[in-house]
Design a protein around this nucleic acid. Sequence first.
DNA 1: AGCCTATGTGTACGATGTACACGACAGGGA
DNA 2: TCCCTGTCGTGTACATCGTACACATAGGCT
Lengths: 182, 182
Amino acid sequence: MGDPKSVDLPARLVAAALSALERGEDIGLRAVARDAGVSAMAPYRHFRDKAALLAAVAMRGFVDLKTALLAADAQRDARAALIAQGEAYLAFARARPALFRLMFSGHDCGPPPVEDNAYGVMVRRVRQLAPADPDAATLACWSAVHGMATLALDGGLPPGDARLEHAALSLVVAGLAPPDPG
Amino acid sequence: MGDPKSVDLPARLVAAALSALERGEDIGLRAVARDAGVSAMAPYRHFRDKAALLAAVAMRGFVDLKTALLAADAQRDARAALIAQGEAYLAFARARPALFRLMFSGHDCGPPPVEDNAYGVMVRRVRQLAPADPDAATLACWSAVHGMATLALDGGLPPGDARLEHAALSLVVAGLAPPDPG
DNA sequence: AGCCTATGTGTACGATGTACACGACAGGGA
DNA sequence: TCCCTGTCGTGTACATCGTACACATAGGCT
């Protein structure tokens, strides 16, 4: 993991932290540094403190999330695309729970850059679907999707009942605009 | 805070932890014990470890949340009651952010007891409003409300734009069932 | 050459969660 | 009366954490 010392240390550190996260371990700065092949104090040359490293990891997570949302959005029908985005969001949270939690732990500096990344993908579709009061529609949609993901992780959502989740997402999307008028 | 040694220690510890949370400090077991007027090891006579203490604090939070939801639910119109519940949920999260985060941090033992507490208050109203596919409606509603609260804390919800939030909640509730048929 | 800056090392400190052995103290049988 | 036993809290000790500090080293400039 930390063998190729030729690549820059910040990237190696982020990669090591990410892989520790995916492995389910709680990341410690010392362990990350060791996995990256450097001493415990080396990360401080590139990150102000542990929180800054975690913020960098979270950034990476937001990039991946945006990619997933973009892929799910590649559909003709706006309504279906929006629902698919929601399902992709949920799948992302379930596939990488620790990373997802980190992304929305708020310990990082200020609000997460959701607006410039994943957020925008969903906002476009919502605006297209609900031109009247698009801000409220966006907030409703984003809240439902994000809430479902966090409930799946830390709330009490029983298992991954795909049919139920699809139905719930459909309900929300249907509420944004009249479902299928002539 | 820790003066009245007559009352039982577990309650004093939970109270001390809660007040530290509300004060914005991150709770440390030693500090909590000191605030409760006992030594650092005393809590271990009543809680297996720090996580168990936090779980007890979270329980208290769920009780308070249920109370708030019940108060908001005291209305005639089901739709209005549901929206009021959402707003109360959001207000709770904003008023006691650290407690709210703790309640849904997942570090506690298993899923939070939402079902027996706050969850049920909302479920009743949703079932009353959307008798067809009530499970999906419940999931949609709960997700939207919880998601909006977490986004308000750790996502990038700008300020507390009450009008916008009310509109978003209305959209979701409207999606649960046709808004006002004859 | 000499030097400057960036980068990484080693050591040390305070704080944390917690394991362990001990002391104080109440209640109940002899 | 004494003692025995269980519950509760104390004090000490240890591993681990994040991180401040001083130092070593390497690469590019003049």
